[in-house]
C-alpha cells in the first residue's frame, strides 16, 4: 500500500520538476538554489530574477500550507548551536562544491552531468554517515 507521505513526496517532486523546467525552458537558467542565493547576494548586475525566484520559494511554501492544510512541521533538532554549525557548514560546502541538492541533485543529474552525479552521491553518502555517527555517539553517551 502506498502511504500518503510517499504520494506527497512524488507529487511534490513532480512540481519541483515543472519548476526546474520552466526556469530552463523560459529563463534559460538552472534551478540551483545555492547558486541563485549566491548570485542574489554578490552578483549586483543580474539580481532581480534571483530575488524574485527566492521570494517565490517562500511564497510557494506559504501557499502550499494555506491551500492543502498540511500542518507546519516542527524541527527535529531544536538546538541553536547545531543550527549555527549546520548552517555554516552547509553554506561553505555548497559553494566549495558548486551546488546543492537542487543544482546537482536535480538539474545536474537531469542533464546527465558526471560532476553532478558524483557530487550528489558524495553529499548523500556524507549526510547518511553524519546521521549514523550522531546516532552512534548518542547511543554511547
Amino acid at each position: 500500500m502506498l502511504d500518503e507521505s510517499l504520494i506527497q513526496a512524488l507529487i511534490g517532486g513532480l512540481i519541483i520538476g515543472v519548476s526546474a523546467s520552466i526556469l530552463i525552458l523560459l529563463s534559460g537558467r538552472i534551478a540551483g538554489i545555492s547558486g541563485i542565493l549566491n548570485g542574489a547576494l554578490f552578483n549586483s548586475g543580474d539580481r532581480l530574477w534571483r530575488i524574485l525566484f527566492l521570494g517565490g520559494l517562500l511564497f510557494g511554501g506559504f501557499l502550499c500550507h494555506l491551500f492543502t492544510g498540511k500542518p507546519s512541521p516542527e524541527l527535529a533538532i531544536n538546538s541553536p548551536w547545531l543550527a549555527i554549525a549546520g548552517g555554516l557548514i552547509v553554506g561553505y560546502g555548497v559553494r566549495l562544491g558548486s551546488g546543492c541538492t537542487s543544482g546537482h541533485g536535480i538539474c545536474g543529474i537531469a542533464r546527465l552531468s558526471k560532476r553532478s552525479i558524483a557530487a550528489t552521491l558524495c553529499f548523500i553518502a556524507s549526510g547518511m554517515t553524519t546521521v549514523a555517527l550522531i546516532k552512534m555517539i548518542g547511543a554511547v553517551i
Partner: peptide, 17 residues
C-alpha cells in the same frame, strides 16, 4: 565541498532550498 555540505545537512536536516 559536497562532502562538507552533507555533514551540515545531516547535522540539522536542511539543505539550502
Amino acid at each position: 565541498g559536497s562532502a562538507i555540505f552533507g555533514i551540515g545537512w545531516g547535522l540539522f536536516g536542511y539543505c539550502p532550498g
